[in-house]
């Protein structure tokens, strides 16, 4: 799918900023609106945008389908693994208090870790579904 030069230049300008915005939504979710779900879909939308403008092969070179499909369960593993770690540290499942000396700080660390898990699963799922749809027509 080779489209106009306008699309290609716009995409090149837009995608880096939108990916940084996704990271901002991810890591600023403690203070502003947002979090793993939102960051995941914004990042996935940008990868899909890239695939539409520059072709599926170009996108799959950057984000191989194997990696994307691995991300789908990996996020769950991160999320659930954080819960197991908090159990090993002698607390209830998914109680992040023992992650730091200050229980409240531990909660904050736990939230950040868990949100990374959400980001990985959500973006992986979205891109994997897009790949399998887009790879079908050929």
């Amino acid at each position: 799918m080779k489209l106009d030069v306008i699309f290609r230049v716009t995409a090149k300008i837009l995608i880096p900023f939108a990916l940084v915005f996704a990271l901002y939504v991810q890591f600023h979710g403690d203070f502003g609106p947002g979090g793993g779900f939102q960051a995941g879909v914004v990042a996935a939308a940008m990868i899909i945008f890239y695939a539409i403008i520059f072709g599926l092969e170009a996108a799959q070179k950057v984000f191989p389908p194997r990696l994307v499909e691995l991300m789908v369960p990996a996020g769950i593993a991160i999320f659930a693994g954080v819960g197991v770690i908090s159990m090993l540290l002698g607390e209830n499942y998914l109680n992040y208090s023992p992650f730091a000396a200050n229980p409240a700080l531990g909660q904050e660390y736990g939230i950040i870790l868990v949100e990374i898990g959400v980001l990985v699963t959500v973006s992986g799922t979205m891109v994997a579904i897009f790949y399998s749809f887009a790879g079908r027509g050929r």
């Binding site: 979710g29 609106p33 996020g75 659930a80 909660q107 939230i111 868990v114």
Partner: peptide, 24 residues
């Protein structure tokens, strides 16, 4: 409890973390 000013995030990931795990 969590040092997180955005209550949506703290409810989602900490107070109701198990629900969010279910959502994921």
């Amino acid at each position: 409890d969590t040092l997180v000013p955005n209550v949506v995030t703290s409810v989602l990931a900490s107070y109701r973390g198990f629900d969010t795990l279910g959502e994921v």
